[in-house]
Design a protein around this nucleic acid. Structure first.
Length: 287
DNA sequence: AGCCAGGCCCTCC
DNA sequence: GGAGGGCCTGGC
């Protein structure tokens, strides 16, 4: 099914910029698992091509459109952010890259897994979790597994999760799954809450500090002002933005600084700077 | 061999 | 409140 897109949209950068971990590229199509469907997407002239199973393409598309963040007016985001040359360069390189609006539960577990890790390993970890506990989706060689429910991971417990190669993150996931499954926290309702309040709620969960919480807020909870500071963003800020500050800005103060500096779309700035830094290497210096 | 990685948590000051 | 060390596993 062909879907016309009249907004700026870079599918490749959107799906492979480290915000989601279940998309693969087979040389022609991006395929992943969302909304309990095996979904195939490819960028085409003037839009996207979509195929999925088991649902009907036309029925799934509205959900996918929301997932891909296509409702966000990127021109507005860019003009709000495009005040400095560094950011403008990154935006030009990955023009059309969007922040996804993922399922909060899958996003939460994914970023708990990200602690002291790297993208290839996170990707393996998440796939292992799905294969072990997720419902099969799709058929034949296209068969994948849905992301398991909180209840399923809660009942699995720490030891089997560790056995999947998650390390100490297994304990965090088991405990957080219990809190979500038991109704102590309603992730989806955080979309309706203000940023600060949702942040506090999330950081009460095991394995969720300021960085992980901000990833979840940005990539799944509709909080475009969220600003996760990891080592990559730390370097970018230090070298490109904080150089001229009178007082040194320590790591815990970087997020508030950046949110004040970049404004309501700080999260978009974050993602472009992060992606640019990661793709173009760490040896950029101040150039 | 030893260090560090897309952090978090706990302890101690 | 903030600095420092430990933690699983894997890759260099």
């Amino acid at each position: 099914m062909f879907i016309p897109i009249d907004q700026p949209f870079d599918l490749e950068s959107t799906l492979h910029s480290g915000q989601a971990f279940r998309w693969r590229w087979d040389g022609g199509w991006h395929h992943g698992v969302v909304f309990s469907n095996v979904v195939r997407l490819r960028q085409a002239e003037g839009g996207l091509e979509l195929s999925c199973e088991p649902d009907d393409e036309a029925a799934l598309w509205p959900l996918l459109e929301d997932y891909l963040g296509l409702d966000v007016d990127l021109a507005r985001v860019y003009s709000a952010l495009g005040v400095d040359s560094r950011l403008r360069d990154a935006i030009a390189r990955y023009h059309g890259m969007r922040v996804l609006r993922q399922d909060p539960w899958e996003c939460l577990v994914s970023f708990i897994c990200s602690s002291a890790s790297n993208i290839p390993r996170i990707t393996r970890n998440i796939e292992s979790i799905c294969q072990a506990y997720g419902r099969p989706v799709g058929t034949g060689t296209a068969m994948r597994h849905a992301f398991p429910t909180p209840d399923r991971l809660s009942r699995a417990g720490e030891a089997p999760l560790r056995a999947l190669g998650l390390g100490y993150r297994g304990a965090y996931i088991a405990e957080t799954a219990g809190a979500v499954a038991g109704g102590a926290i309603d992730l989806m309702s955080l979309r309706e809450e203000p940023y600060e309040q949702a942040l506090e709620t999330l950081t009460d969960l095991a394995g969720v500090g300021d960085k992980v919480a901000n990833c979840v807020l940005l990539f799944s909870l509709d909080k475009l002002e969220a600003f996760p500071v990891d080592v990559w963003v730390d370097r970018v800020l230090r070298e490109w933005y904080l150089d001229g500050e009178a007082e040194p800005v320590a790591r815990p103060k970087m997020r508030p600084w950046a949110q004040a500096h970049f404004g309501a779309y700080a999260g978009y700035a974050n993602h472009y700077l992060f992606h640019d830094r990661r793709l173009r290497g760490k040896g950029l210096g101040t150039g």
